[in-house]
Amino acid sequence: MNASRYERQLLLEGWGESTQNKLSQKTVFVAGAGGLGAPVIHYLAAAGIGKLRICDSDRVEISNLNRQVLYTENELDEPKARAALKRVSKLNAEIDVEALEERVDASNVNELIAGSDIVVDCLDNYASRLVLNQFAVNTGTPLVHAGVQAMYGQLTFIHTPITPCLRCLLPDKITELSPKPIVGAAAGVMGGLQAMEAIKYLTGMGTNLANEMLLWDGADMNWQVVPIHRDTDCPVCS
C-alpha cells in the first residue's frame, strides 16, 4: 500500500493504517454505473476499497454525460462497466476492479453479489432495486439505497433485521417514470452520500443512516432526516 496516496484520510483520528488495511480487504458491489454509480465508484476507488465489482449492462450515451462523471465523449458506446473499470484503474492501480456487463435480476443476483461486504444501490428503477433488496434481506448484506431525480433525492442504510428493508417503504404497485428528469449535480450529491455510508460501514467509523431516511430538496436546499420503521406485513422481511 502506498501510504502517501491515502495520507489525507490516514490523518483522521481513528483511521490509521489498520483501518486502511481493513478497507483494502473489502469488496463492494456497485449496482449501476450511471449518475449515482459514477461518484460512488470514483470515491470508493479513491478511498482504497480492495475490490470493486461494477455492474451495469448499458453503454455510454451522449445523454449520460450531464451527470455520469466517469465518462467522456471518448467512451461513447462503450459498455459502462468496462469504461468505469478503465477510468478507476487509472485513478488507483492498487485496487482490484471487476466489470460485470449484466443487468441484475433474480436469476443472477446471487452469483453476481456473492462475497461482497456491502451493496450500493445506484440503479434507476425499483424492479431491479427490489431484486437487490431481496438478496440483502436473504443474506443479511447491508444495502445503501439512494434515488435521485430532478433536484431531489433520498438516502437510507438498509441492514435487516435491524432496519426496515426497501420493500417496507414502497407501495404494492409502482409505475416507473422514464426518462427521469435530472440535474447532474444532484446525482453527485446523492452518490457522494452513498459512498460515505459505504465507507463508514466498512471502516466502522461514524454512524450509518439506519432506521432513518435523509430527504434532500436541492431546489430549496432543505435536508430532512425522518424516522422509518419496518412494515410488520412486509412480504420480504417480515
Binding site: 434515488g147 433520498q154 407501495p171 416507473e176
Partner: peptide
C-alpha cells in the same frame, strides 16, 4: 412519525408527504 398509506388520520394530525426519487 413514519406511517404507511393506510394510516387513519386523526384531528390535528400534521402529515408530511415526501416523494422518493426513482432515478439513479
Amino acid at each position: 412519525t413514519n406511517e404507511k398509506a393506510d394510516y387513519v388520520l386523526n384531528d390535528n394530525d400534521f402529515l408530511k408527504i415526501f416523494p422518493m426519487a426513482m432515478g439513479g
